[in-house]
Structures are given as C-alpha cells and as structure tokens.
C-alpha cells in the first residue's frame, strides 16, 4: 500500500510530471535547433542547467528549513531540510556528470576548473560531509540541530565560493549559459520548458521524500 500516490492530487502530479518529461525529452531530441560547432553535445544543456537550478534551489530550501527548524523546533522542518539536502545532492551529482560529458567533445578535456562546475563540486563535497555528520551524530534529535546549522553555513558560503573560484581562474571562461537569454527562441523556449519540468519534478520528489521520512518516524 502506498498512501502517497493513492492521494489523487499526488497521482495527478505524478502523471503530469511523467508526461511533461516525455514531451521534454522528445522536444530536446527532435525539436531544438542544432548549434553550430557543438551539434549534439549542446543538447545536454537542456538537462545540465535545469539540474543545476534545482540543485541550488534545493540547497536554498535546506537553509530556509534550517532557519525555521531552529526557530520553531518543529520536526517537520528537519524532514524538509533532509529531503531537500538529499535531492539537491542528487541533482548536483547529475550536474557533475553532465558537465564533463559536454566538456569532453567541446573543450577536449572532461574536466577543467570552470567556476560554476568547481562551485558545484565544492558544494557536493560539503554535503557529503553533511550526510556523514547526520549519520555519525550521537542521537537523531541533535543531528537535526547540527544539520540545520550546517545547512545555513553551507549556503552562506556559496557566494564567497563563487566569487573566489571565479577570480581564481579568470582565464577559464564560463559556459555560454548566461547568454542563453539572448539566444533565438528556438533554444530559449525549450530551455524554459525544461526548467519548468525539472522544477515540478523536484517539488514532487521533495513532497514524496518528506512523506517517506515522516513514515519512517523521523
């Protein structure tokens, strides 16, 4: 028995996300224009950037729920924080996998210390520490408090990491994703569509994970 998806609203969103994702993938493969010089490699951006967006959004939610947990001491915020941390790390792992897949044919090397990827890697490592801290804590109620504090600390570090990494290797250019906005609508619209799909998928995953954590009695 799965009470989460026996709820009609949740079932509706599951079906919607599934449908949207199928449309999204087909759209990316058949419908988006080929960018000169990059050809198929460029298409990974429709997955790479939305993953990064959801990942960072997720860590933002970790911080917000951390603050709320410290103020309200309600276990609900700990569950949301933990779920967001898990899913955020999952999406950032996706970013770290898709980045080199794109970089290999375009830059000739799978990894160069591109600022945004470097920031992602550092955050990914911080969150590995976060999960270790949670599991090695002396008892779960205290783990909730340390995790809330760590989520705040980690997010506060992001702007400083971004800034320092950018100046650390100024010779390495960022991906062309900032210029995405000025791209022809042939690229921009599918991109916005993909980000929307990922965001809806993310919130459904978050809701589901929070539900499971609650059932586990956390």
């Amino acid at each position: 028995m799965n009470p989460f998806f026996s709820n009609r609203i949740n079932l509706f969103w599951l079906a919607t996300v599934f449908l949207l994702m199928v449309v999204n993938v087909i759209n990316i493969i058949y419908n988006t224009p080929m960018v000169p010089d990059q050809e198929w490699a460029q298409k990974i951006f429709y997955v790479h950037v939305p993953s990064a967006w959801t990942g960072f959004l997720s860590y933002f939610i970790v911080m917000i729920s951390g603050i709320l947990f410290l103020i309200k001491k309600d276990q609900k915020w700990d569950r949301i924080g933990l779920a967001a941390a898990e899913i955020g790390t999952l999406f950032l792992a996706l970013v770290l996998i898709t980045g080199p897949i794109w970089a290999k044919p375009i830059w000739g090397r799978a990894w160069i210390w591109e600022p945004r990827l470097t920031t992602t890697l550092v955050l990914f490592l911080i969150y590995i520490g976060y999960f270790m801290m949670r599991s090695f804590s002396d008892y779960p109620e205290r783990a909730a408090r340390t995790a809330a504090v760590l989520g705040i600390i980690a997010f506060a570090d992001i702007p400083i990491i971004v800034f320092s990494v950018k100046f650390w290797s100024p010779e390495i250019q960022s991906h062309p994703q900032v210029e995405m906005a000025s791209q022809p609508p042939g690229i921009l619209l599918p991109f916005i569509f993909s980000i929307t799909c990922f965001s809806i998928l993310y919130f459904l995953m978050l809701r589901y994970r929070v539900h499971v954590l609650k059932l586990q009695g956390r």
Binding site: G129, S137, R142, T146, I161, V165
Partner: peptide
C-alpha cells in the same frame, strides 16, 4: 564545536572544514 559530540568527530572536522574553507585557501595562497 558542531562535531564535538559526534562519533568520528576527528574525521568529520577536516571533511567538513576543507571544502567550506575553499575560498580561504584560494585567497590566502593567491
């Protein structure tokens, strides 16, 4: 202080500290 009551706190501190300190490491060296 955060890790002092955890098991393995000796291991946890560097694992958490080094990535969080990456701006400091870069800035100090530069």
């Amino acid at each position: 202080g955060l890790a002092m009551r955890s098991r393995l706190s000796n291991v946890l501190v560097p694992i958490l500290l080094f990535p969080l300190l990456s701006p400091v490491i870069i800035a100090s060296v530069k």
